[in-house]
Nucleic acid binder design. Structure first.
Lengths: 199, 199
DNA sequence: CCATAAATGTAGTGTTCGCTACAGATGTGG
DNA sequence: CCACATCTGTAGCGAACACTACATTTATGG
């Protein structure tokens, strides 16, 4: 059977542009007009490819997390829990103040509270934040097994703590905190892991 | 001269209702229709009293911080820096999961990234978060003078750290984290201050 | 008791929102 | 080369948005 006219735009390149608009303005603050202009396409192409505005957000979130996956592997491969925390928070400080991206974290400022009809946008972001927290928890469980973290350490609590600190850094970065300020927070936060290490 | 017809609604009670709508839906997610219904007034009364939507937000933020002032005094009056941190974070965990309020913190989920035309809403929230951080920093400077924190401690960094953790807890709470989870984070976070205390 | 001043309720305003109908263009399968 | 399936651009849909004109009501000052 016939296959139809092929798409003229690069979906991944368009998603990168959409991601940046959502990142800078949040889900509700981003308009279809801004998104289509940034993506270089017209509304019908957007809706044909992604369904609707929320579908576009999900696709952009997928791409956001996919791009971070390699970095996250790097983080988790650090030899000790303390080094995992340091890589995680220092990397977060740097990426959230990277001039090539909007400041902060898309998974935080994308939309913590939304209006009627967009209720699952916050859930969508939260679910993806939770994935990182899960990875950290599993890594800290392993650190206990390896005798790196002391037996009394609470892997889940430490993962939650790291997740909270990086989210908090995202809040600060979104309102203009510079890299030095975020690194200060990262340095202070890491100290917790020195106390939790087996001596 | 004549004084005009007096206002029929209680501005503070109306602000409490508006605050909750902004808290739950964010600045952009909250509609004038929702706000006026919650406040029990009609649009002209809202605009006569507060100017516009952003003016209403500012008034609601003023009331939000005013309500927290007494609690903040309580926090700052703790005898040591460690106790300040503990009261601050435990209180934050409790208030952000208080069933009488929407979950999380208005100063975080009110609007980290907004659309064109509302650019100063994030600044407005950030400025008020910074006030708390300033209070904490001054308190930690005092703690150093009192010999409670060791001389090498960085008061500004510790204040920023606490500010980041509480913002991060707000992010978690906004997506449904329960009180126990937040208290776990608070407990872990406080450990930093034990290391920073003069022995 | 009258003139003035301000708040109220009704009923809208113009604009922008997310989204789509439709016609034409561009490819594939037979 | 034709039938078909899908994408593209133009143009615009109904709905919801923040906000307001206006007549009315309710107070105060003289």
């Amino acid at each position: 059977m016939a296959m139809g006219r092929p798409r003229e735009f690069d979906a991944d390149a368009a998603l990168d542009q959409a991601m940046e608009v959502f990142w800078r303005h949040g889900y509700e603050g981003a308009t279809i007009a801004q998104l289509t202009e940034a993506m270089g396409i017209n509304p019908p192409s957007l809706y044909a490819a992604f369904g609707n505005k929320e579908g576009l957000l999900k696709a952009a979130l997928d791409r956001y997390t996919a791009k971070r996956a390699a970095w996250m592997d790097e983080v988790l491969s650090a030899p000790t829990a303390r080094d995992v925390a340091e890589r995680m928070l220092m990397g977060t400080a740097d990426s959230q103040t990277d001039p090539d991206n909007p400041p902060g974290c898309l998974l935080v400022q994308g939309g913590l509270a939304c209006g009627t009809g967009s209720e699952n946008v916050p859930f969508e972001l939260a679910a993806r934040r939770a994935l990182t927290e899960d990875q950290l928890r599993e890594r800290f469980v392993r650190a206990k097994e390896e005798g790196d973290l002391r037996p009394a350490a609470d892997a889940a609590a430490l993962a939650r703590y790291l997740s909270a600190v990086s989210a908090g850094m995202g809040v600060m970065a979104s309102s203009g905190a510079n890299r030095e300020a975020l690194r200060q927070v990262a340095n202070v936060s890491v100290k917790v892991f020195e106390e939790q290490s087996a001596k």
